[in-house]
Design a protein around this nucleic acid. Structure first.
Lengths: 224, 224
DNA sequence: GTTTTTTGTGACTATCGGTCATAAAATGAC
DNA sequence: GTCATTTTATGACCGATAGTCACAAAAAAC
């Protein structure tokens, strides 16, 4: 009956994660404690630590789940031969931003993961898996960029490092802006419509930075 | 002697801030407590709360100091008639990124400020001042962009919202990347040289996104 | 049914941000 | 100088937290 035990153990891990997800959706991020998670799952606090080395590992696991979900979509875009490179890029970016927009819990964890202190707290296992996930993202996006260059839409003169540095910075920054919801910016970013407008602007900007000429941008915008 | 009292009060506030700065430079961000700050300043913990409503207000004050320092430099760039608009932009961006690169404490606080939870904790006074600082940054940069458009270097067809959304996103994202020091990126971002390379790449990318044609980028790079 | 092993637990520790009654110092009146 | 009054500084205290571990409860083995 060792098998059943393992299954039960895994089922409870899922229970903890689901509980956490549920609590995070309804409650303020900062006030969630391990005690509450345990209580809500219907187990003792000590049991939680049988599954996760620390509180942040729970978050890391949830983040990883979402990352892997997004990654498969990215890979689908990259493999879709019907789309041009630029279309693949646009599809990936819009998908990622909209996923972020609709998923409050993921927003929190994405930001949290960017903090060095979080990366130092979580166990190396999760850290490595999250990092390799990031690599695959870059790989999938890089494929689309190469396709874009081959098709003549993407400016081949821009060094690859410049492109990658710039794109990933804009990506990160837009994610932050989407989570923060405005702060002091000219655009408030509170309603879904405002966020959508923002997302489209950022994607236009990113494509514009990569494509060869400005009239290409206008053409792209007309298509959308 | 009311005057002397006020001066002494202000001097101690400066003491607290300097102590905090000192401790933050040497210690890990997460392990710094109000107790330690008070002890290191040579005062009781309660006294700290005579000067600041909460712990995060201390950080907010330090952040504001740096922001105002940077702001004056931004405004100098914007007012410098000897430079073209694009040169002003490049100057501002390079200055900001390098300031960030060299100032570990500022890095932490900048990231911290982006968190919604931090913005909710600090007193409205600091929040407003930080927000208005951000507005002035945007204003100064916007001036340079307008100059660039007037001079024909910046692409006038890109809508202003697209430009602003994209630029600020890239700016934020690059700040995050500089602080995190690589994580999993293709570029490690640990030494000063690596960070400098990164900074130059991102600035090139930002200028490329805004300027009209790609050969203009090559020309700019040649000049630098 | 009894012993042994495995598994679950919540009381406990250490630490934190923030408060407030009270001690200490400064001021003022004479 | 002395005492009364006001102002200022303080650290013991509070509630809450992440993480631990001795021990209880359940399961397995015999």
């Amino acid at each position: 009956m060792n098998d059943r035990k393992v299954r039960e153990f895994e089922r409870r891990e899922r229970d903890i994660l689901d509980s956490t997800l549920e609590l995070l959706s309804g409650e303020h991020w900062e006030t969630l404690s391990v005690d509450k998670i345990a209580r809500h799952t219907g187990i003792g606090k000590g049991t939680v630590y049988k599954h996760f080395e620390c509180k942040d590992d729970i978050y890391a696991h949830l983040l990883l789940d979402d990352c892997q979900l997004m990654l498969t979509r990215f890979q689908h875009f990259a493999a879709d031969e019907c789309l041009t490179g630029v279309q693949q890029m646009r599809g990936m970016l819009l998908y990622a931003f909209k996923f972020h927009r609709d998923n409050v819990v993921y927003q929190h964890m994405y930001m949290y993961f960017k903090q060095k202190s979080f990366r130092e707290r979580i166990s190396t296992n999760y850290l490595q898996r999250l990092d390799s996930c990031d690599e695959y993202f870059t790989e999938a996006f890089g494929k689309a960029v190469c396709k874009g260059i081959a098709e003549g839409e993407v400016n081949p003169d821009m060094p690859q490092e410049v492109m990658m540095a710039g794109m990933s910075a804009t990506y990160e920054g837009a994610m932050v802006a989407l989570q923060e919801g405005g702060s002091c910016k000219q655009q408030p970013l509170e309603t879904t419509e405002q966020k959508d407008t923002y997302i489209n602007h950022v994607v236009d900007y990113m494509i514009a930075a990569l494509t060869r000429q400005s009239d290409r941008l206008a053409e792209e915008q007309g298509k959308r």
